[in-house]
Structures are given as structure tokens and as C-alpha cells.
């Protein structure tokens, strides 16, 4: 990789998350992304942990009470693979990103950083990849891995494991890195999440 840009790995979740805001703004200005309203945080639930046990009430406090609260709507969903999703919805993308950060931060601040798996942003791609122009929008996800503090695009083509559009993902990853997103460099770490509940 070149000397300029894209070669540094973020040190913490917030510096990584802030690259989403930047990249999204740039891509939207280029007309390659239509704003998405939804995102999620996925973690392994643990009822022994008081905070996680009471997550509904805790998140109400965190997201709704106090100055600067984003008032992002959220729902809790358990998937069939033993994981819990906090699905967030907000028309303001900056607020959405900051709520995702806040939720993840609260979970790790309450002794459950090991439980955190990923944050996922939903984005509709309207640009061109490999001679295909997606005028009506291609549903993509940007997955953020808490253990690596990096993102990668995910374009599922079906519900079962392994069904994904790799060439499109590879090209997008390249473009997203160009636009400042902290993209995971090791492709073998680009693991998918099939059956995302939003």
C-alpha cells in the first residue's frame, strides 16, 4: 500500500467509527451511496452480566436521557445462532453512527468487551462495480469488527453461509479505502454475517 493514507489502523473504536462518517459523506456526495437508516451491534449475550441482563432499560437511559442524547430508536433481537442484536434506526446518519459507538462503548465499559462481535451498517450502493451500475441500489453492509477495529463490505447473495458477492466486495473494499474508511487489509478476516435481522 502507498505511503499516503489508508495504511494506518485505528487505535480505538471511535477513531474507526469516525471514518464511516467521512467515507459515507464523500460517497453520498459522489452519488454512490444512498443514506441508510439502520445499523446494528451484535454480541454474545450473558445473563450473568447485570448490564447485559438489563440491556433494554440501560439503553433507554443511554440513548434517550440527558443532553445530546441521540434518541435513536432501537430494538433487541436474538438470532438463531445464539447472538443478540441491538438494531438501531435513525434518519440522521451521524447520530446513527454515534449511537452505535455509544452502545458498543457501554457494553465494553461493563465488563463485556469480550462479548462484542461486530457493528453493522446498512448502506445502499448506487455506483458502478465491474460494469454493473446499481441504479436502484445494491444492499450492502459495512461490518465493523471490534476485535480488529476495522471495516469491510459485505454483500450477501443468499441466506446461507458462503453466499456472497466476492468480486463486488473486493472492488468496494478498494474504493472504500480510497475514501478514507478503515478497511480490513487481510481478506481472510472478511467473515460474513448471514441472516442479518435488518
Amino acid at each position: 500500500m502507498g505511503i499516503f493514507g489508508g495504511s494506518k489502523t485505528p487505535k480505538n473504536d471511535w477513531s474507526a467509527m469516525s471514518t464511516v462518517i467521512k467515507a459515507e459523506a464523500k460517497l453520498q456526495a459522489l452519488g454512490e451511496i444512498t443514506p441508510a437508516r439502520r445499523a446494528g451491534v451484535i454480541y454474545r449475550n450473558d445473563d450473568e452480566n447485570g448490564f447485559l441482563k438489563d440491556i433494554d432499560r440501560e439503553l433507554n437511559t443511554i440513548l434517550y436521557v440527558g443532553q445530546g442524547a441521540t434518541k435513536t430508536a432501537f430494538e433487541i433481537e436474538d438470532d438463531d445462532r445464539g447472538m443478540r442484536w441491538i438494531v438501531l434506526e435513525d434518519g440522521n446518519f451521524n447520530d446513527l453512527v454515534s449511537s452505535v459507538y455509544t452502545v458498543g462503548n457501554a457494553i465494553s465499559a461493563n465488563d463485556a468487551s469480550e462479548n462484542l462481535l461486530a457493528a453493522v451498517f446498512e448502506l445502499y450502493f448506487t455506483g458502478t462495480v465491474e460494469d454493473n451500475t446499481y441504479r436502484s441500489g445494491l444492499r450492502t453492509y459495512w461490518i465493523y469488527r471490534y476485535d480488529r477495529k476495522t471495516f469491510y463490505p459485505f454483500v450477501p447473495t443468499g441466506e446461507s453461509e458462503g453466499e456472497r458477492d466476492r468480486p463486488t466486495e473486493a472492488r468496494m473494499g478498494h474504493d472504500l479505502r480510497k475514501h478514507g474508511l478503515a478497511v480490513e487489509k487481510s481478506l481472510t478476516e472478511w467473515m460474513g454475517l448471514w441472516g442479518i435481522p435488518f
Binding site: M83, L117, R166, A170
Partner: peptide, 19 residues
Amino acid sequence: KISGTVAGIPDKDLRKLQT
């Protein structure tokens, strides 16, 4: 064209890291 970059992208679900 096809696999230079693509071959490394895994089939694996991220949740397998936790279970």
C-alpha cells in the same frame, strides 16, 4: 481478473469466532 483478490474472502460466518 476473478480471483486475484477474491480467493481470500472466506465462507465463514463471523459468529463462529464466538462459538
